[in-house]
């Protein structure tokens, strides 16, 4: 046997095998694991990096259970939730025995509401119901002007504490113009709770995405999390790329997520309590980066309603929060610390 040829052949074959294995994406594929569920009226995905499948699956299960728990307490669409119980109570009556966690979130929502001079409002359930953006099928026309006017009149009669938490931890809704809708804050809160569950159980590289509201921790080894920002007028396009390799939360509010067109006018789901109509602030999309998802969630809504000038003023009161705003003409403005590696106008 020609030994040198056999050995050279084996060496070459071994080399090819090594190259194949090195070129194979198996390692990264095994490291990135993802699971998606239908929760909070949207698709919620949890992705982890660098953890074994067993470990990741077990901890993701705990995180999904945490989101489920928060939703069961705070959704106004679930008949047995504490929020539904509150909304069904007679106005003016004090409701007791509410979960401390819920009261705490309501306090935080009220505080952001005050700071935003009412642009952010967790008491808009009756107005949201009038517009019906959460209905199936979705609306095709605005509600009657008389209904909106009636709501505005009722609201004008509200006391300062339309949602009042008493010193003995009871809660009172002042009149029929007010009802709890934690949609602008509870999704972010649930994402935060889920991330805390992951971290507490040793999962340090993770991305939670709840219908576009997300929180990130760690990275994908030597690669950052690679996040796109949707183009408000091109559903499959992106206007900015955010490469993030540290703990961060991102939330976007836009006029394109839930909307209808009637007589050439776009009616979207982000309502301005001052007008009882979809906010017309000159912005079509607001993305906020923050340290926690609840703040990012609430601020993106607040800035969208307030508009560029007042919105950016509000943002300054929140340390470590950054924003990217897209104006109606498609131009963009972003604060100096906003993480975006590439952006273009839509």
């Amino acid at each position: 046997m020609n030994n040198w040829r056999a050995w050279a052949g084996l060496l070459a074959i071994s080399g090819l095998c090594v190259l194949w294995l090195l070129g194979s994406p198996r390692q990264e594929q095994e490291a990135t694991l993802s699971e998606t569920r239908l929760l909070m009226g949207t698709l919620v995905s949890i992705t982890t990096w660098g953890h074994t499948e067993d470990e990741s699956t077990r901890v993701m299960e705990l995180a999904f259970a945490e989101i489920d728990r928060v939703e069961a307490m705070m959704s106004r669409f679930l008949p047995a939730s504490a929020v539904t119980h509150l909304n069904n109570a007679p106005r003016g009556e004090k409701i007791s025995a509410l979960p401390t966690e819920l009261l705490q979130l309501i306090r935080q929502g009220l505080e952001i509401g005050q700071m935003s001079k009412g642009a952010f409002d967790i008491g808009l359930a009756p107005l949201s119901d009038l517009w019906g953006f959460s209905r199936e099928p979705p609306p095709e026309a605005p509600p009657p002007a008389s209904d909106l006017q009636h709501w505005l009149t009722l609201r004008a009669n509200l006391p300062d504490a339309a949602i009042e938490i008493t010193p003995d931890h009871q809660l009172r809704l002042a009149n029929a113009a007010v009802g709890l809708d934690l949609g602008g804050i509870a999704k972010g809160y649930a994402v935060d709770r889920a991330m805390e569950t992951l971290l507490a159980n040793g999962v340090t590289n993770a991305l939670i995405n709840a219908g576009g509201d997300m929180r990130l921790a760690g990275s994908k080894g030597d690669k950052p999390w690679h996040i796109g920002l949707r183009d408000p007028r091109q559903p499959n396009g992106v206007v900015a790329v955010m490469d993030i390799h540290k703990a961060r939360a991102i939330s976007t509010s836009g006029d394109y997520e839930r909307f209808f067109l009637a007589n050439g006018v776009r009616y979207h789901h982000i309502l301005d309590p001052k007008t009882a109509a979809p906010a017309r602030s000159g912005l079509i999309s607001v993305t906020v980066q923050a340290t926690d998802s609840m703040t990012a969630d609430a601020l993106s809504t607040s800035l969208f309603v307030l508009g560029e000038q007042e919105g950016l003023k509000l943002l300054q009161r929140f340390p470590d929060c950054e924003a990217l705003l897209i104006r109606e003409d498609g131009s963009m403005v972003q604060t100096s610390g906003f993480i975006a590696t590439r952006s273009r106008s839509p």
Binding site: T32, T36, L43, L207, I250, T252
Partner: peptide, 25 residues
């Protein structure tokens, strides 16, 4: 509808090309 379809089976060794880990919207 509350309906979700997932394609399941042996995980592909060649991961599908995904441009972004997630899209904020």
């Amino acid at each position: 509808c509350g309906i979700l379809i997932k394609v399941e089976g042996a995980r592909p060794k060649q991961p599908p090309t995904v441009e972004f880990d997630a899209v904020s919207q």
